[in-house]
Computed example of a mutant assay.
Amino acid sequence: MPFVNIKTPEAALSKAQKQEIVHRMTEMLVEYMSEAARPHTMVLIEEVKDGGYGRADEIFVIPDSYRAKDDA
């Protein structure tokens, strides 16, 4: 079973963007593995709360400009 795990800052992606990511990742894996992989492909998008991760010894908080504008 193909499994993709994407971690992203909370509120960085809209619902529509998440749906597109799931669709495109599934399509990509089907291209590589064949249509038989489609019903078994899992794409997990995990949202990490602000302050829940860091880089270079600095806790990361998502800037407002990175937040999804529309959660349609």
Rank of each mutant, 00 (worst) to 15 (best):
A56C: 09
V61D: 04
A56L: 03
Q19E: 14
G51S: 05
T26P: 07
E10D: 14
I6K: 01
V43R: 00
V4Y: 04
I62Y: 00
S34E: 08
Q17A: 11
M25S: 14
K15T: 15
H23R: 15
E20R: 14
N5R: 14
V30P: 01
E27S: 15
M42G: 07
V43G: 03
D70P: 00
I45M: 10
S65K: 10
A72E: 11
L44A: 12
V4L: 13
D57K: 05
L29A: 05
K7G: 05
D71H: 14
R67K: 14
V30Q: 09
E31G: 10
G52E: 05
P63K: 05
K18D: 10
K49R: 10
G54N: 04
E20L: 13
M33D: 00
M42C: 12
A11I: 05
F60M: 03
A36S: 15
Q19L: 14
E10K: 15
H40P: 00
G54M: 09
T41C: 13
A56H: 01
Y66D: 06
Q19Y: 04
E10M: 13
M28L: 14
N5P: 00
V61E: 09
V43C: 07
Y32A: 15
T26C: 10
M42N: 13
E10V: 13
R55A: 03
P39S: 02
R24Y: 01
F3Q: 10
K15G: 12
E58T: 07
L44V: 13
Y66A: 11
P39C: 06
H40W: 03
Y66Q: 03
K7T: 04
E27W: 09
A37C: 12
S14F: 06
R24P: 03
D57L: 02
E10N: 13
Y53V: 02
E27M: 14
V48T: 07
D57Q: 01
T26E: 09
L13W: 09
R67C: 01
I21H: 07
D50W: 13
M1T: 11
G52I: 01
K7D: 09
S34A: 12
Y66F: 11
T41Q: 04
A11N: 15
H23N: 12
D70A: 08
A12E: 07
T8M: 14
G51C: 06
T8N: 11
D50F: 05
